[in-house]
Amino acid sequence: MAIEITQRLDARNLSCPMPIVKTAVAIKGLASGQLLEVVATDPGSTKDFAAWAATTGNQLVEQSTEGGVYRFVLRKK
């Protein structure tokens, strides 16, 4: 099932806390239920995005790693 990404965010080559900070800013522009895709290269982001999603109530729908790039799909609360 293909999922519809509303917005994409490139957070590659950014270190903590910028991927999260930029994600928070980006997700503000979305409506509830819309999806945001983030790509990052910070290895800490795998844990950080899960923690951030739990704190904010946004849902981490998908998470994958490919060649050192971490991909997250978040659904706005």
Partner: peptide
């Protein structure tokens, strides 16, 4: 500043 910006990003 890292903690403050992350905390703000976490609502």
């Amino acid at each position: 500043t890292i903690l403050a910006s992350t905390a703000a990003a976490s609502g």
